[in-house]
């Protein structure tokens, strides 16, 4: 990279836009989204795949962007929180008070968004299975549960 290490040019599709970036092969997708594309909605919380704050949607599925290399995302459809506009799950998070500090929120919303699209009829067990990959330290999860369930029941057709 700028220290002279090998760099590669990657074609990414982020939020339905083609973006060319120059990255080190070791750069994570999270790093490139934030530092090169200015999409800081995805957050670093652990850079280890433990907390889910960096979750984006990749070809329709939730993906922790801190444990994926940017080069691996080439040619795939990446959606970040900035790619969502006024979706039912975003409204539900606000209306149900599903965040406090808001740092984990983009990751949670992206995970919920993918869940709603893939499993609109998700049972409690499936919701838990999906959402356990993210950590919220502020709430006690009750409001997040209410938010996602409100969309799964009533909002699945509008997404």
């Amino acid at each position: 990279m700028r220290d002279g290490a090998h760099v590669v040019k990657i074609e990414l599709y982020v939020n339905r836009e083609g973006r060319s970036v120059v990255a080190r092969p070791a750069d994570t997708l999270l790093h490139i989204l934030r530092e090169e594309l200015g999409l800081t909605g995805a957050k670093p919380g652990c850079n280890n795949g433990d907390c889910g704050a960096c979750t984006v949607v990749m070809d329709g599925w939730p993906m922790k962007s801190c444990i994926m290399l940017a080069v691996e995302a080439a040619g795939r459809q990446v959606t970040t929180i900035e790619g969502l506009r006024d979706t039912p799950i975003q409204r539900a998070f606000a209306e149900k008070w599903a965040f406090q500090c808001g740092y984990c929120t983009p990751g949670f919303i992206m995970n919920c968004h993918a869940l709603i699209q893939n499993r609109p009829d998700a049972t409690d067990e499936i919701i838990t299975d999906w959402l356990q990959s993210n950590i919220c330290r502020c709430t006690g999860y009750k409001e997040i549960s209410e938010a996602v369930k409100s969309v799964l029941v009533t909002g699945k057709d509008t997404l």
């Binding site: 934030r34 800081t40 900035e82 506009r85 965040f99 808001g102």
Partner: peptide, 11 residues
């Protein structure tokens, strides 16, 4: 906060 636009120091 629901749109990822809230900025934190590291952003």
């Amino acid at each position: 906060k629901a749109t990822g636009r809230a900025k934190y120091t590291g952003d």
